[in-house]
Design a protein around this nucleic acid. Sequence first.
DNA 1: CGGAGCGTTGATAGAAGTCAATTGACGTGG
DNA 2: CCACGTCAATTGACTTCTATCAACGCTCCG
Lengths: 239, 239
Amino acid sequence: MTNPLLLYLEERDRLSPEEREIILAMSARERRFEAKADIVKEGAVPSESCLMLSGYSVRYHILEDGRRQISAIHLPGDFVDLHSLLLKQMDHGVAALTDCRVALVPHRLLRDITENQPHLARMLWLSTLIDAAIHRRWLVTAGRLTATGQLSHLLCEIWTRLEVVKLTDADSFDFPISQMELGDTLGLSTVHVNRTIRELRERNLVQWQGGRMTILDKEGLRRTAQFEPAYLNLQQRPR
Amino acid sequence: MTNPLLLYLEERDRLSPEEREIILAMSARERRFEAKADIVKEGAVPSESCLMLSGYSVRYHILEDGRRQISAIHLPGDFVDLHSLLLKQMDHGVAALTDCRVALVPHRLLRDITENQPHLARMLWLSTLIDAAIHRRWLVTAGRLTATGQLSHLLCEIWTRLEVVKLTDADSFDFPISQMELGDTLGLSTVHVNRTIRELRERNLVQWQGGRMTILDKEGLRRTAQFEPAYLNLQQRPR
DNA sequence: CGGAGCGTTGATAGAAGTCAATTGACGTGG
DNA sequence: CCACGTCAATTGACTTCTATCAACGCTCCG
């Protein structure tokens, strides 16, 4: 299986053989996390950044009143806390959604890249810019779409992002998330998430069982979500 | 008046005299925009990035059904489209909220910085990471706070960000935004924005007239918003 | 066998949107 | 100085969306 970060980056620009080497070397130190475990704790000042190799994880924020909001879902090929290289202290936590394999990339190495590998540094910067673009898109859906639209949009997005790292089937993908976690992601109650899923099912847009999501009507889902993948920057360009 | 980007960056790390030179040189080419004018159009592929020198602007997204969502408010010292250096094509527009002065910074210069000024490049990267941190915080408030909490949070944030660039008075600041624009920012209808403002006024938290916002009860507002400024990274650290 | 956690459903309350109308501030032209 | 137009702010009435509360079933696992 190819390295997912390599797939992620080469979807956006070409890499030199030397750059490819460096990327592969990043995955040297690997660590496993169990489902529900914290990968990075809020308040931590990491000395390495975590690259997802397998499994799903989320960035989460706990409010003063104890409620939780998830601000990102991370898939293989995503750096979950690359920003800690410069932001230093984590203002949120990262939790494993499923059992995960994670590469621990020392900040020393990342810093060296910013000093000596300008193009690769730009590619890492790019990955955080795509994260930000996804955040913005979520703001749009949160602000302007109904629960149904929001959920549809999330499914379209996850589908598209999983395609990049070759983790989709013809019309289905792993979606190992509970309705409570989905509620924390979309800013909805569990009960309403449940109703929303039922609606998508009744409209024959999706099927979801045993942690596997099957898209029955891709165009219908896209329309419900007003999904446009441009923000994911899926084009090879010199960066 | 000091250069706002210099204030912005030096709040986060020290700069060398040479770096300070380069920052100042960035503001060489200046352009003015009138209120409501587009600073960057959606779909554009800019060859320069826009740095706010004075005035307020917003990033906005138009949905297929014509509604609008604002995903960021930009103040002096902010780069509104630094990300276009690597993302190339704009997936959203940027509009002036007020009359603005903007520095046009050629991508050629920014790219040179990534090649030859690694620390300064990291500082620019940092500024986009702070943008992303703000996006995440907005996601949290959109998902979990009531309209009153959201609006309070926005006011606390703008206040704090304006302090960095020395644009606050003892207890007030310019807040030149219409209730419609505020609705597009918070994902609320104008009518509900109006109700929400009235509530803040009735609770004696703020006063707002003639485009000037006065905070009457800072601690009360902070509590209503559950505001914690950590995400703004207001600490000088080696980055 | 019996929790514990998750998914499901129904009933009700509260938050926010929509529609419609009014008011106020400001600028222009007579 | 006033009439008029425009735009934003404000308010009320009604509707829709989502949260909350409560109950129940299922499945997995100790």
